[in-house]
């Protein structure tokens, strides 16, 4: 489903200097599977999520990103989104003045139009939003407020998952979805993610800690260090990391 081959990516820093963050990542996530990417700070986890979703400033210099048989490395972010790629942000962005419901309706219909599907009518959309919001214990009042403005950390993360439930992407990248969540919020978010698990949907769960993986059980765990995958294995790898830390992998990558 998602095939990343020998991906190199450089990022332009604020001082204009360029830095290579990804140094040849290869990774394949088949439909129906959940893969976890674990790694220390600065290993390139977030960069990988931005490179795959096409953020400006994250330039792919070598390698390829193939999604469902299509090369997407040169596509605009909205084109990748319309093909079903979804990124749950580590730090969801506040958009003052744009009510969440309006934002979500615009997003859903833009994706549908891009795919040649009919737009969803306002009443149908409201029904959909109400049903999905209930699943995540999100009030409709909250959805009338501007996107993420004044939301707590937990509310922002829940809203990320709500957006995924409404947009129904084919592939989800969850970037540090557990950060800033207490255990109750973590369970709600993980439940939401688990309802999205499906034979035709893949997921990449990026996390620093093993904790999230107790709730979202991965099929494969990859360890990322210095912009490369240094080890892949089963779920037991996450437990091993929790016990032993990242130190030995940082050594290996250097």
């Amino acid at each position: 489903m998602l095939k990343i081959n020998n991906l190199h990516c450089k990022v332009e820093a604020q001082d204009g200097a360029e830095k290579f963050i990804l140094n040849g990542i290869s990774l394949e996530v088949p439909a129906g599977e959940v893969h976890a990417i674990m790694g220390p700070n600065g290993s390139g986890k977030s960069t990988l999520s931005y490179a795959v979703t096409g953020r400006d400033g994250y330039e792919v210099t070598e390698g390829s990103i193939n999604f469902n048989g299509e090369e997407i490395g040169d596509m605009a972010p909205e084109e990748r989104a319309a093909r079903g790629l979804y990124l749950s942000f580590q730090y969801p962005v506040e958009i003052p003045g744009v009510p969440t419901l309006i934002f979500l309706k615009e997003a859903l219909n833009a994706q549908r139009v891009a795919r040649g599907e009919a737009e969803v009518s306002a009443p149908d959309f409201m029904k959909l939003a109400r049903t999905k919001a209930k699943q995540l214990s999100i009030s409709m009042d909250m959805l009338k407020r501007p996107v993420n403005v004044g939301f707590s950390g937990g509310e922002k993360k829940r809203l990320e998952i709500l957006q995924a439930l409404i947009l129904e992407p084919k592939f989800l990248i969850l970037d540090e979805t557990d950060s800033g969540l207490d255990i109750d919020a973590l369970k709600v978010v993980a439940d939401g993610v688990n309802t999205l698990r499906a034979p035709d949907r893949g997921m990449l769960v990026i996390t620093h800690y093993q904790r999230l993986l107790d709730y979202i059980k991965p099929d494969v765990v990859h360890i990322l260090a210095a912009g490369r995958i240094v080890k892949s294995g089963g779920p037991e790898l996450a437990h091993e990391l929790e016990a032993e830390g990242y130190d030995k992998y940082i050594g290996e990558a250097a």
Partner: peptide, 15 residues
């Protein structure tokens, strides 16, 4: 806000 623009585009809203 470039970050907000990317966030919106990632959700499928054209630039």
């Amino acid at each position: 806000d470039e970050t907000a623009l990317f966030y919106m585009r990632q959700r499928g809203i054209p630039l």
